[in-house]
Design a protein around this nucleic acid. Sequence first.
DNA 1: CGGAATCCTTGTAGATACTG
DNA 2: CAGTATCTACAAGGATTCCG
Lengths: 133, 133
Amino acid sequence: MSQRNTGVTTQVVNAHACPVREVLDRVAGKWSVQILVAAAHGPIRFTELERGIEGISRRMLALTLRNLERDGLVTRTVHPTVPPKVEYELTPVAVELHETLLRLTDWAERNREYVAKARAAYDAEHQPELLDA
Amino acid sequence: MSQRNTGVTTQVVNAHACPVREVLDRVAGKWSVQILVAAAHGPIRFTELERGIEGISRRMLALTLRNLERDGLVTRTVHPTVPPKVEYELTPVAVELHETLLRLTDWAERNREYVAKARAAYDAEHQPELLDA
DNA sequence: CGGAATCCTTGTAGATACTG
DNA sequence: CAGTATCTACAAGGATTCCG
C-alpha cells in the first residue's frame, strides 16, 4: 500500500480466475470502448481523441490509453518533432475486439427502445409516488 | 438527493446521448454478465445463482438481478410455495445479448495469454524496481 | 428461501494546475 | 502538444444484520 495511486492499475496479483471478468475488466472502464472505437479507423493523435470523445478529461484519456497500451491493445508512437506528435493505433488483437464490440453496439441499437420501455414500465410499477408529484 | 442509496439506480435523467455507453452500462457491473451467463441455460433460482457465481454477495446478486429485471433482461417469477421459490429467466432480448457476449468471451479466451504477456512486458519495462525486491 | 436495510471501504473519475 | 500531479467526490461494492 503506501504507494500513492499514480493512476496505473496498482494491483499486481488480483487472481481473476474468471475469464469472463478478465475481458470485461479490460473494457469496463468508462472510456475504454469509446477510445477503441475512435481509434479503429487508423492512427490517431492524443488531441484528436480528446476532441473526438465528448466529455472525456485529459487525465482519463491519458490513463485509459496507458492501460490499453499496457494490455497490448494500442501502440503508442512518439514522433520526436516540434511540437511533439504522438499517435495511437489499435493492435490486431484490438481490431478483433473492436469487431466483436460492434455486435454489442448493434444489439444496443436494435433494443435500445425495448430497454427504455422496460425501464419506464418497471419504474412506473415500483415507485408510483414519483409520478404524481 | 437526500434520498439514501437504496441500491436501485437513482438517476432518472442521465442523458446518455452515447449509444455505446448505453449498452455497456447495462453490462458494466461487476456481476451482470456472469448472471446472464449463469441464467442462460434456463430458469434458475436465487440460491442456485448465489452458489454458482463465485464470490458474489447476496446483496449484489439481488441488486443486479433487480436492475436486469428493470431493463427487461430477466423475468422474475415467484412461486407462492413454502418455502418460497423464485426463478429468474432470460428474456429473448437477453438471450440475444448473451450470444454476442459469447463472442466476447471467445475473444478473451483466444487472447488471454497475449494480454497477460503484454502486461508483464509493459510492467517489466516501466517499473523494474518491483522486480528486484 | 429470498430478500431489504444499514454501514463502511474502496475504486473510478472529475476539476484544476503545472511541465517537458 | 501531450502529458503529470494532487486533491476531492461519488457511486459501486463488501460485510453484516434483520425480516416475511
